[in-house]
């Protein structure tokens, strides 16, 4: 039997790590209980304990199901039993598309203050269309722009001004 670390096990590690990290952060919270008898550290401690225990349980659970008696049963487990290298694989994962979608969101975040809502929004909408494998990019670009521009002016009418390219401008 080859020991494999499934995506879910990585996740379990992540949850345990999160718990440990929070436990470390917990030290910074003063625990003056006052009359309540329990302080502001009490509930976080419960949650932290829960995270570590539940993460451990998830880790154990997968170990068991990865044991020799279940390794042959595909179906339910096939998604989880994958190589460490492509831990998130399910069907044919298209990480290029994930990157395009993520990139669009991050670019939007960075650009919205510089070029205003309309242009950043157009780029975002168009980027998502690309990530979803659009067949007609030109039309999408035009419609993305129309949508972003429309929303910009709708909000402006409402008195909620989104950032513009030039303050007070129409874009």
């Amino acid at each position: 039997m080859i020991k494999r670390v499934s995506g879910e096990q990585w996740l379990a590690f992540g949850i345990i790590l999160l718990g440990l990290f929070m436990a470390w952060q917990l030290q910074d919270i003063p625990n003056d209980a006052g009359y309540a008898g329990i302080g502001p550290r009490f509930f976080p401690s419960l949650v932290v304990t829960g995270l570590i225990v539940a993460g451990g349980a998830l880790l154990m659970q997968r170990r068991h199901s990865n044991g020799p008696d279940t390794i042959l049963s595909d179906g339910e487990n096939d998604a989880a039993e994958v190589e460490a290298e492509d831990e998130f694989a399910r069907g044919d994962a298209d990480w290029r598309m994930f990157a395009i979608a993520s990139g669009s969101l991050i670019a939007h975040m960075a650009l919205i203050g510089l070029v205003g809502f309309t242009l950043a929004g157009t780029l975002l909408c168009f980027g998502i269309c690309r990530a979803l494998d659009t067949r007609r990019p030109t039309l999408d670009l035009v419609l993305s722009f129309a949508l972003a521009l429309g929303l910009f002016h709708l909000f402006k009418t409402l008195g909620l001004n989104l950032p513009a390219l030039i303050p007070g401008g129409v874009l």
């Binding site: 919205i112 203050g113 008195g159 909620l160 001004n161 303050p167």
Partner: peptide
Amino acid sequence: MKLKTLLVSCLV
């Protein structure tokens, strides 16, 4: 955070 605005009002 360099951006301006969440400018409300004008309706007044």
